[in-house]
């Protein structure tokens, strides 16, 4: 109970502090530069000053936080990648040389590429299929809700769920893992799935696909519903069958949305680390970049230089998507 109380107090203090800043700073601004009464000339001047200051009162905390938590670290990571394990002695390109001669890096890079190809493709594909089909049946919303559900589950929680499915029992014991039970049921030999090289990566990817399909489905379903009915009706009159309508009429119209879904999942895949850490701890050839970075950061006291280099690799992979996003946002702003 004591813990609960102190937790409550910290929570309230934290939130109140934040609210107090906004109220306080704006109150002060209105007091120093009153704009609601007084001589017209004064008001005009005060208003101009206040209008120049107020955006920064509103933006201040956000800009500070973004700078401290995202912008500065990116810069500092670049710097650290040229420094040694403690981040104090300059080592030039040594970390990069190490990286490109390390087998582990190639393993994780290869695995990451596999993840990047398989997960976004599979999740988008399933999402699109399910979105199309659920839009046509009366219990579609319930189905969607259930397929969307894994989205709420943490990667660690999902790992437990799936580890249970991949569970393996030796000898003649009954298999309590669903997958092995099925294999046995169909007369096969039970396997320790998570230790089979290369394939184990796919067993891990299944988890992320399971989680992300719902996301793809929800967004694509909205896009599909945004397609004007007239275009579909016109295609029906033109004699197209169901599949032709899907591939030639519907998919091209939501191409932009598919790209957005794809890139969103791609970014998520690049950052994924919880699943690998929890499922295999990167053993049996399942290492990925994000997890490798994490282990260099902490294991054996940590090596900040090498960790930073790996982080930079992830960043470089993300940059094309970032540029594309910014372009899109700019085009959209001009449209307004």
């Amino acid at each position: 109970m004591g813990q609960l109380a102190s937790a409550l107090v910290t929570m309230i203090l934290g939130v109140m502090g934040c609210a107090a800043y906004f109220y306080g700073s704006n109150f002060l601004l209105d007091k120093i530069f009153p704009t609601k009464s007084g001589a017209a000339a004064d008001v005009a001047r005060n208003l101009r000053v206040a209008n120049n200051i107020r955006p920064w009162l509103f933006l201040g905390p956000a800009v500070l936080l973004l700078t401290f938590y995202l912008f500065y670290p990116v810069i500092d990571s670049i710097r650290l990648s040229f420094y040694g394990r403690s981040g104090e002695d300059f080592v030039g390109l040594a970390n990069y040389k190490w990286l490109f001669s390390s087998d582990e890096f190639y393993e994780s890079f290869r695995n990451n590429m596999l993840w990047l190809i398989v997960v976004p493709t599979a999740a988008t594909f399933f999402g699109l299929i399910i979105a199309t089909m659920t839009d046509r049946i009366w219990w579609g919303n319930i189905a969607k809700s259930l397929i969307f559900m894994p989205m709420a589950i943490s990667f660690v929680g999902a790992s437990v769920i799936w580890k249970f499915i991949y569970d393996f029992r030796t000898g003649g014991e009954d298999q309590i893992g669903l997958l092995n039970a099925l294999v046995v049921f169909f007369g096969g030999e039970p396997q320790t799935w998570l230790t089979i090289p290369i394939w184990n990566n796919f067993f891990l990817m299944v988890i992320l696909i399971w989680i992300q399909t719902g996301f793809a489905m929800v967004i694509l379903s909205a896009a599909l519903r945004g397609i004007p009915d007239e275009t579909i009706e016109a295609a029906v009159l033109d004699g197209a069958n169901g599949f032709q309508i899907f591939y030639k009429i519907m998919v091209p119209q939501i191409w932009g949305t598919i790209a957005v879904v794809w890139t969103t999942i791609t970014i998520l895949v690049l950052k994924v680390f919880d699943i690998v850490l929890a499922m295999t701890n990167a053993q049996w050839g399942t290492q990925v970049l994000a997890n490798q970075m994490f282990s260099w950061m902490f294991n054996g006291g940590g090596d900040f230089g090498r960790g930073a280099v790996i982080a930079l690799v992830i960043m470089v992979l993300v940059i094309p998507i970032m540029v594309w996003n910014i372009r899109r946002a700019n085009a959209e702003m001009e449209g307004r």
Partner: peptide, 11 residues
């Protein structure tokens, strides 16, 4: 009769 170029809308 007052120049209001810089006067806020409300005033």
């Amino acid at each position: 009769g007052v120049v209001v170029n810089d006067v806020p809308p409300a005033l």
